[in-house]
Amino acid sequence: MDHSIIQIEKLTKSFPMGKSKFTALYGIDLSFGEGEFAGFIGPSGSGKTTLLNIIGSLDVPTTGNVLVLGNSVGELTAKQAARLRKESLGFIFQSYNLLAVHTVFENVEFPLLLLKYSTSERRNMVMDALAWVGLTDKVKSKPPQLSGGECQRVAIARAMVKRPSLVLADEPTANLDAANSHNILQTMVKLNRDLKTTFLFATHDEKVIGYLRRKVYLLDGKIDKDEVLSN
């Protein structure tokens, strides 16, 4: 583990439920270094998506402190949180969430439009990203014309195109068959190795768990086990 890019101290997250409240995370202490390939593992309701949301600056801690790339998530304004996501974080969703009317190229290009790259820079970066996931021949295709595996590869390219420091993937293989799941995971492992991008998963899929080099098991909002595999 090199530099720590995520530091979580005494994180608690509660949600109001009528007059009472539901606590999803209890006193979590964790840190992740640059280039990790790690995942939160646990059954539904264990708190793994909530934890991923807070790390992704989509939600804020109730108590405790979460530092992501030097930014204290609980203290960020909406604009600052958006900037953090825009510049440094990539997201991969279970159901791809591609823009159906736009081509593969345009879907991957979208994060770069927000970062105001020039046309030629965008073109080069998009083609690089599509080359990483093996989809340079599908540039003009639209999502409805692609298979589930291809769609998820486009989503990975979209998450990776701006070369973020951290990619958060929530159940990325849930809608894929075994062959496509392995293909996707191998692609991510390769990107993690080549680009030193940190990958954090929320999953309970055994296929994903098999690829993780660090497994943080969550149970009822607490860390049950933190397992780091030796190289």
Partner: peptide, 16 residues
Amino acid sequence: YGEIGVRLAIGEEKGH
């Protein structure tokens, strides 16, 4: 909803 959600997640500001 999905499109707007993913745009916000990618880092587009609500105002934008």
